[in-house]
Simulated assay, not measured.
Amino acid sequence: MKIENSEKVRFGRGQKFRLSTKGNEAVSAYTLLVERSRAGMGRAQFDAARGEWSGPRGLTSEDGLFLVEFGVGERTISEVTRNLDDCASPREVKAAVERLLECGMLEPVVVQAPPPPPPRRYW
């Protein structure tokens, strides 16, 4: 359930995201679905299988595409947008990232702060 008055979390343009364990399981199931549908009868069967895959997970049928892209490794939104240039607009990618974060399929990569410099010695 989405709370209407809640603030959206904003991420910097260099923020990277990766799959969570839940996301890894979803990608494995999606990859298996794609492999099985290649032997099937056509697009209608593939669309039906994507619907069956996405329904129980609370996703849209297009989310498999985005999950597979993040499954390659840690990616920023702009990297995914560039890679899916022919498939999805930047607005669709951002909406998918927000949706996948909310579902727990993606998680932001926490960047370790660099260690502080050693104390300066004056002799």
Rank of each mutant, 00 (worst) to 15 (best):
S78E: 15
I77T: 12
I3N: 11
G58R: 06
P108D: 00
P114V: 03
E52V: 11
K8C: 05
F11N: 06
R10P: 08
T76N: 03
G64S: 10
S78V: 10
I3R: 10
E79H: 05
V9N: 03
E7C: 03
W123R: 13
V72E: 06
K94G: 07
E62V: 04
L33W: 02
G14K: 09
A26N: 00
L33N: 02
Y122M: 05
V34S: 08
S37H: 08
K2I: 09
P116T: 15
R91M: 11
L59F: 01
F11I: 02
R120E: 04
Y30W: 01
A113E: 14
I77A: 14
L101C: 08
R18A: 01
N83I: 06
E98Q: 12
F11V: 04
A96L: 02
R38V: 06
V68W: 06
S61D: 10
R50P: 02
D85Y: 09
N24Q: 15
Y122P: 01
A88E: 06
E4N: 13
G55V: 07
L67A: 00
G64D: 08
V72R: 06
C87H: 10
L32S: 14
P117G: 04
F70T: 10
G51Y: 01
A96S: 11
A49C: 02
E107K: 13
G55P: 03
S37P: 07
R43Y: 04
E107I: 11
R43P: 12
